[in-house]
């Protein structure tokens, strides 16, 4: 088990004894773990283990009752709001694909483009060639170049998931939180998505919450198992799969 006591110097995200309760129900109960820079991490666990709540806490949607979330060794995220956290360099992908359905694929990416998020900047914004090139690049990465002028609402489910990942790339975050990216995808789309995430993780840290064990296996990374709002086990997929308690509460015999 990893604990706070000996965390390495290159942590990008460090959750320290986070507790959250809703109307008496403890969603997170002293959750602690860390993610290193450039790491790809999978989080698994049964329903109600606190996976989504953990993401809510990191991205500022939910403020914990106690505990700290330290980002890049210097900022405590627990008192900041979503916009501030996003601008610090943390991106989030929802479980259900959420893109701006009445706008084109290109406009979706342009909205996500890293830069000044202020009112006046938006009012007088002009796209420069470098930015246009960056959008083209990401379109290529998420395989949507041919769909750039289509409305996002008209994309298939898998394409929407990719567009959302593309928007996260436009944000150029240091840390990316991805919630069940392959739910409802075909096998082929799932494989492509795994490829995409691995590519992305080369230059930044990625935390993926997932149920699909085959997909976790294809990510080939360190795995954290959550149970009842705390870390149950952590390690390579093989170690996890051999862990008695994990088998008992989650994987089943």
């Amino acid at each position: 088990m990893t604990t706070a006591a000996h965390r390495p110097d290159d942590t990008i995200l460090y959750l320290d004894a986070i507790s959250v309760s809703f109307d008496g129900f403890k969603a997170l109960d002293g959750l602690s773990f860390y993610v290193r820079r450039g790491e790809l991490r999978a989080i698994i666990g049964p329903n109600g283990a606190g996976k989504t709540t953990m993401m809510d806490v990191v991205t500022g949607k939910t403020h914990p009752d106690i505990g700290q979330v330290i980002f890049a060794d210097r900022v405590d995220l627990t008192r900041l709001d979503e916009a501030r956290i996003a601008n610090l360099g943390i991106g989030r992908k929802f479980q259900k694909p959420t893109v701006f359905e009445t706008q084109t694929v290109f406009d979706n990416l342009e909205l996500a483009l890293a830069g000044d998020r202020g009112l006046w900047a938006a009012l007088f914004f002009r796209l420069d060639p470098a930015q246009r090139q960056r959008i083209d690049q990401v379109l290529e990465t998420v395989r949507l170049t041919d769909h750039r002028h289509r409305l996002a609402g008209h994309l298939s489910h898998g394409q929407k998931q990719w567009l959302e990942i593309g928007m996260l790339l436009m944000q150029n975050p240091q840390l990316l939180l991805v919630d069940e990216p392959v739910a409802g995808m075909t096998d082929e789309e799932t494989q492509r998505t795994a490829q995409m995430l691995k590519e992305i993780a080369r230059s930044r840290s990625v935390v993926v919450v997932e149920h699909d064990m085959a997909f976790v296996k294809s990510l080939d990374c360190r795995v954290t198992v959550l149970h009842e709002g705390a870390v149950l086990a952590e390690g390579s997929l093989a170690t996890i799969q051999a862990n008695e308690r994990v088998i008992e509460v989650y994987l089943g015999r």
Partner: peptide, 27 residues
């Protein structure tokens, strides 16, 4: 303007807009 597109983004998916780093309340 892009501000208008941000407004429409807020209209269609407020949370997403927030997580992209826009201060929805200012807009």
């Amino acid at each position: 303007s892009k501000l208008g597109r941000v407004l429409r983004a807020i209209r269609d998916a407020e949370s997403r807009t927030r997580f992209l780093g826009y201060r929805v309340e200012h807009y």
